[in-house]
Nucleic acid binder design. Structure first.
Length: 206
DNA sequence: TCTAAGATGGGT
DNA sequence: CCCATCTTAGAA
């Protein structure tokens, strides 16, 4: 499939999309949108098919749950910037910072359906037979996203999220978030969202 | 300084 | 099931 960075087809989401105060709604609205990266002369793009919401106030699963540290600083900034952190010393997980200055919410992007730059993705994934972009750590590797991109403006030309004018209809499924069992009662929040029937999600719901 | 834990992924 | 791998946060 051809993909062109053409504003008549793919339009960057405006800052106001990210600045909304309901991070759960933003997580749902990010499904179906297109994540685009342009690093090292390689353009890659994919449809977002799975997300998770994290709220900075009262959510024990969120890194910035009341605590402001060097790592979580960017989440306290304005919406529409990248928060990328290293997980288990190996995986770079990409989040979209949402809400306004001082309100540290974010949406973790957990899986994409590749649309463009398949060769670059496979090369970056070292041609393994494993999953290409179905998981928060694999999609970042495929798209060349790493912790150095923390703070990147998502309205930039290197890394951005755009809407497709195709307007496909789909049903949204929700489930508990993955890997946050330590968060006690907050682990039960059904804040993982995915596109029903899409085969590129990281895991099916129960 | 020291250390345990972690929003995972891939192989056995 | 097991483990690679290393930053971060919080404790001492």
């Amino acid at each position: 499939m051809d993909f062109e960075i053409n504003t008549s087809v793919y339009e960057k989401l405006p800052r106001s999309f990210y600045q909304r105060d309901d991070v759960v709604q933003v997580a749902k609205d990010l499904l179906g949108k297109v994540l685009i990266s342009n690093f090292d002369g390689m353009i890659t793009a994919g449809k977002i098919v799975e997300t998770e919401a994290y709220c900075g106030r009262g959510d024990k699963a969120c890194h910035a749950n009341g605590k402001k540290t060097p790592r979580t600083q960017v989440m306290y900034g304005d919406g529409g910037y990248a928060y990328v952190y290293l997980c288990y010393g190996i995986h770079h997980l990409f989040n979209v910072v949402t809400n306004r200055e001082g309100l540290a919410d974010a949406v973790l992007i957990r899986a994409i359906e590749p649309l463009d730059g398949l060769d670059a993705m496979k090369e970056r994934r070292k041609f393994t037979k494993a999953k290409l972009t179905s998981g928060p750590g694999t999609l970042t590797q495929a798209m060349g996203i790493n912790v150095r991109m923390t703070g990147y403006d998502l309205l930039s030309d290197e890394l951005c999220v755009a809407s497709s004018t195709k307007g496909e209809k789909f049903k949204i499924l929700s489930d508990v978030r993955i890997g946050v069992e330590y968060a006690e009662e907050d682990a039960l929040r059904p804040w993982r969202f995915l596109i029903e029937g899409n085969s590129f999600v990281s895991k099916k719901v129960k």
